[in-house]
Design a protein around this nucleic acid. Sequence first.
DNA 1: ACCTTTATGCTTCTTACCTCA
DNA 2: GCTGAGGTAAGAAGCATAAAG
Length: 299
Amino acid sequence: MGEKDDGLGLGLSLSLGCKPNENDSSLHLNLMEKPSQSMQNHQHRTSWNEIFQFPDRNPDARSCLRGIDVNRAAEFEEENGVSSPNSTVSSLSGKRSEREPIGDENEAERTSCSHGSDDEDGNGGDLSRKKLRLTKEQSLLLEDTFKEHNTLNPRQKQALAKQLNLRPRQVEVWFQNRRARTKLKQTEVDCELLKRCCEKLTEDNRRLQKEVQELRALKLSPQLYMQMSPPTTLTMCPSCERVAVSSLSSSAAAAASSTAPANGQTCQSGPPNVQRPIPISPWATLPIQRRPLDASAPK
DNA sequence: ACCTTTATGCTTCTTACCTCA
DNA sequence: GCTGAGGTAAGAAGCATAAAG
């Protein structure tokens, strides 16, 4: 449809700390266990309640509505039937073609929907479900409403349905489907982003492997090493696991290794005496995993 | 206070219909 | 006219939550 994705309240909690053009390849995936439903519902309900002062989760309001459920009452009034998916009637019914009653409800549906195409096809006697395409105006208004808020409380659903000359159930279904489409779109976007991040990491990895090979090659000519700049020291704080990088002269490195992190700042969260300096030098025999790339490296 | 039941609204998956190339 | 793909309205199942008993 080419509609702009507003990214509102998506169930998929996936945040990427990696942008394609950034040098930093850090990737933060926050895949929450069951992110969408409860959290989202509450968020939206809260905002709705704040905006419209219609706390449908408010005990008082709810108890008031218990007798007269706005939504169900309206649906009953309009459809002379039950539309809730979990209602006894709907759950008792079987396949759609068998389920849909002849007559009243379909009749009511057709007459309640004002778009011409439905009436024009002249298939009133057909038992199978007819696709009720929403008009451009209806879609536009629904879309605008969705941009403002992607869920509706019963009262708003009712009002919007009335405004659009649709049944509340239709408005509800439209919003459900719209949310699903938004989420799907966002998932696709996130997936694409992940793919790009993965490609970048692969490229980085390849580059680093190459560097390792070059450094190993230096082993063969130690005199070259003497001309190199002083070794880099990494100091890691064991509690926060931050690594500080510094290029030190041997005396400075010795000093740093016994005191604060190399960046000169004392780490507040961890014991100061247990920091481990990690020297990096071409001679260091780091346990590097043997990979096909390494295996083929010159010795 | 805790448990069970019920009602409600949501997500997700699926189906059926429509449109268009 | 036929056909397959894509879009979408709607149904169904399952889950979470809140309220009532």
